[in-house]
Computed example of a mutant assay.
Amino acid sequence: MRALVTGGAGFIGRWVVKQLLADGHDVWALDDLSNGRQENIAEFSEHPGFKEFCQGDIKDESVLNRLFLNKFDICYHLGASINVQDSIDNPRTTFENDVIGTFNVLEQCKKHGTKIVFMSTCMVYDKAQDETGITELHPVKPASPYAGSKISGENMVLSYWYAYGMPAVVVRPFNTYGPFQKTGGEGGVIAIFIKKKLAGEDLSIYGDGMQTRDFLFVEDCADFVVQCGYSGKVNGEIVNAGLGRDITINDLALLIAEDEEKISHVPHIHPQSEIMKLLCNSSKAYQLLEWKPKYSLEAGIDKTMEWIRENPLLI
């Protein structure tokens, strides 16, 4: 197949590119490098299947017009603003990237008969109520402009399936971590904790640390996202992916630091947008794709720690 990955130089995007190349497809990557890094995809530059890296913006229709002349079979749309606090501070940027940018990509996919896999997020959900976890039928709650923009993008994507019959799927991975994730800012709590542990620094937790997360190793996430592109069974669907195990941030910090004295708590930067319990039920992904994660949390943390230790210049 011929595949475009928007956000292809980002953390998850580079793993999607890697998987597609390993599966023998021709791949183009588009990224404005506002969050992604060319270093993330440097290893693919000589790969015969890696056709082009385009530094460009999904809001720039001239860039999309040129790229889509390549007649893609599928577009993995990962390009987005992803930071919750940034969306609270500057909602316009998040809306323009995650809604208007998505609309521009959808129009190109419709014009060229290209399937779209839309990367959404578990942050669209309200908190889990029990240990059965969050299914795709769980209530959504736009607790931040980031979540609101992603829900808007989801609805636009699915409208193209219903209105035009355009192959489309919405994927909602839970908190993804692993090699190539940045160790600063928000969203990479495991990477941040590991970096601080290796530097001998204290680990800081927002709030009381009782909030839980379901952490998905990035290779499992990329496999899930790529498989959703290959299968027609998920067209018109919303599909979750997670480990199926949640852990409090307090317990996560202890797992990594291995010393309670190295853990401290600080005031939460956006308590109004916190989701206290996130636990994924990914039974739908197994039913439709026979997908399930391969990495336990402990195994994923070990691989991530090894990578951060060996690649200090890439974090």
Score class of each variant (00 low, 15 high):
1 M>N: 06
2 R>L: 09
8 G>Q: 02
11 F>P: 02
12 I>A: 00
20 L>A: 07
20 L>Y: 14
21 L>Q: 02
24 G>N: 02
26 D>L: 09
26 D>E: 15
28 W>N: 09
33 L>E: 06
34 S>A: 15
34 S>H: 14
34 S>C: 11
37 R>F: 15
40 N>F: 15
43 E>Y: 13
45 S>W: 15
49 G>C: 03
52 E>T: 05
54 C>K: 08
54 C>M: 08
57 D>S: 13
57 D>F: 14
59 K>I: 13
59 K>C: 14
59 K>Q: 13
59 K>Y: 12
62 S>A: 10
63 V>Y: 14
64 L>F: 10
66 R>T: 12
67 L>S: 07
67 L>T: 10
68 F>K: 01
71 K>L: 15
74 I>P: 00
76 Y>A: 00
79 G>D: 06
79 G>S: 07
82 I>T: 07
83 N>H: 09
95 F>H: 04
97 N>I: 09
102 T>L: 01
104 N>I: 08
110 K>Y: 15
111 K>V: 04
113 G>Q: 01
113 G>E: 02
115 K>T: 10
116 I>T: 03
122 C>K: 01
126 D>Q: 08
131 E>Y: 12
131 E>P: 02
132 T>C: 07
135 T>Y: 13
138 H>P: 06
142 P>F: 13
154 E>F: 15
155 N>K: 12
157 V>L: 08
163 A>I: 03
171 V>I: 08
171 V>E: 03
176 T>K: 00
177 Y>V: 00
178 G>Y: 04
178 G>E: 05
182 K>Q: 14
183 T>Y: 11
185 G>E: 07
186 E>K: 00
186 E>G: 01
188 G>I: 08
188 G>V: 10
190 I>L: 10
191 A>W: 05
191 A>F: 04
193 F>H: 03
194 I>M: 05
195 K>Y: 14
196 K>E: 15
196 K>W: 15
199 A>P: 15
201 E>D: 12
205 I>V: 05
206 Y>S: 05
207 G>F: 07
213 R>F: 00
216 L>C: 00
216 L>Q: 00
217 F>S: 01
219 E>G: 04
220 D>K: 00
223 D>R: 14
225 V>I: 14
226 V>Q: 07
229 G>N: 04
230 Y>S: 03
230 Y>I: 03
237 E>S: 11
237 E>F: 13
238 I>K: 06
240 N>E: 11
241 A>T: 07
241 A>C: 10
243 L>Q: 06
244 G>Q: 05
245 R>W: 13
246 D>M: 01
247 I>W: 04
247 I>R: 00
248 T>Y: 09
250 N>K: 10
252 L>M: 14
254 L>S: 07
256 I>D: 10
257 A>E: 11
258 E>N: 11
259 D>P: 06
259 D>Y: 06
263 I>H: 01
263 I>Q: 02
264 S>I: 03
268 H>F: 03
277 K>T: 07
277 K>Q: 07
279 L>T: 02
282 S>H: 03
287 Q>Y: 04
288 L>R: 02
290 E>C: 08
293 P>A: 01
293 P>M: 00
295 Y>L: 02
296 S>W: 15
297 L>T: 04
299 A>M: 05
299 A>I: 06
300 G>R: 02
304 T>Q: 10
306 E>S: 08
309 R>M: 09
310 E>K: 11
314 L>H: 12
314 L>D: 13
